[in-house]
Amino acid sequence: MSMRTPLNRARGSGSTKDGTAHWWTQRVTGVALVPLTIWFVFSAISLAGADYTAFKAWAGNYGHAVLLILLIISIFQHTQLGLQVVIEDYVHKEATKVTMLIVMKFIVYLCAAACLLAVLKFALGN
């Protein structure tokens, strides 16, 4: 007879294996993106039609770089979680689903890495 409680046996065995982590992270990144995207929209407005010098001055600002890093992490984490649900909802063939999930995650991480490197380049100078 097992001495483990029913709750202990159930933990980590749900359909997603990670309980509420997915749902919760989606909310936390969503909350973070409220002020971050509002800031980014104002920045994008100021950069409409801007030349390279103006762009570099904006992106090279230390505070802007910090906000951009937070924005990028939140955007891609939120995107990855959201697209995962979309794929899981509509793709029912297991092999296709897993392949699409992996390809989607690879693209998301590739974009995130490229964005972060670009921001670091502006912030740390050439």
Binding site: Y52, F55, K56, A59, I75, F76, T79, G82, L83, V86, I107, V108, C111, A114, C115, L117, A118, V119, K121, F122
Partner: peptide, 20 residues
Amino acid sequence: TGIALAFGAILLTYWLSAGA
């Protein structure tokens, strides 16, 4: 709109990378 914004994130990547 969430799916559209995922493509927007790719465009953001292109824009920042082009700047770099």
